[in-house]
Design a protein around this nucleic acid. Structure first.
Lengths: 89, 89
DNA sequence: ACACTAATTAGGGAAACAACTAATTAGTGT
DNA sequence: ACACTAATTAGTTGTTTCCCTAATTAGTGT
């Protein structure tokens, strides 16, 4: 959905922390929720933004939804940031 | 002012474009404004957010304000993003 | 002091964000 | 079909963002 959506998704600390948790491996929504104080519905909306930015991918496993980090989009953001520096050009 | 402020500043496309313009070298507010369609006051508020995040540094030169990219904060953001990947740990 | 240019701050309005509780959807098991 | 668990969507509220125009501050030159 574009790099704008990705940077927008990265702008909230809770969402960055979700990504940090997922870097150790896939995790269900409930398992993720255990690491936060905020309500599950609020978290669910954060998940939706990460999914919208394709920073995460979801897979259903029985009644649970398992979230996976999508490293390639994270790399796209990294590349975007890097291009703001004087490395190339 | 913290990494949150930095990511928040990076979340708007205009502000990222300002940084991209500054990577080639320092530029005055007016010179920067020449590259955008939006009003100068609006741009000025964008500049203030970049300054608040310390992504840019300002220096007065006569009646002009010259904006410089602050690469070290950009690198901090880069490091923050990198830490969301599985590189280390 | 006055005019001129450069840029910011102030004020206001529409839209988006983030949080909550309540209601709904999806899947499993009896 | 019913109950139970997992998670999301709907609806509401208060806050923040972003844009504009108008007014103000800062510096230079006459």
């Amino acid at each position: 959905m574009g790099i704008n959506t990705v940077f927008e998704a990265l702008s909230h600390p809770v969402r960055r922390r979700v990504l940090a948790l997922l870097k150790t491996g896939p995790m269900s929504a409930g398992e993720l929720a255990g690491h936060f104080e905020i309500s599950r519905p609020t978290l669910s909306v954060h998940f939706a933004k990460l999914k919208d930015a394709e920073l995460v991918v979801v897979e259903r496993q029985g009644t649970s939804l398992i979230y996976h980090l999508n490293a390639s989009i994270l790399e796209a953001a990294l590349a975007g940031l890097l291009s703001l520096k004087d490395d190339d050009q």
